[in-house]
């Protein structure tokens, strides 16, 4: 979860492979965005559109 108005930094994950790691605390991840962020995901919502389908090798997603 992004936490506004606080300095953010990338989490430091363990480098030793094979060792279970706990979930990082929510909010330690990405840097912050804008105070107001538009959700533009729906703006291209036609009757068809981007589909992730792998009907053949040539069209795999």
């Amino acid at each position: 979860m992004t936490t506004p108005n606080q300095p953010q930094r990338l989490p430091q994950f363990p480098q030793n492979a094979g060792v279970p790691v706990s979930h990082p605390v929510s909010g330690v991840g990405p840097v912050i965005g804008q105070p107001v962020t538009p959700v533009s995901w729906f703006r291209r919502m036609p009757t068809g559109g981007t589909v992730y389908v792998k009907p053949t090798e040539a069209q795999q997603s």
Binding site: M1, F13, Q15, A17, G18, H23
Partner: peptide, 30 residues
């Protein structure tokens, strides 16, 4: 240990040694 916890093997360029679920949760827990 469940294999889904953490990817085993050395850290290589182009892949994380940390499970995707952990990184997803750092953005937002499900």
């Amino acid at each position: 240990m469940a294999s889904g916890d953490v990817i085993t093997g050395s850290s290589v360029m182009g892949s994380s040694t940390t499970g995707a679920h952990v990184l997803h949760a750092a953005v937002a827990p499900a």
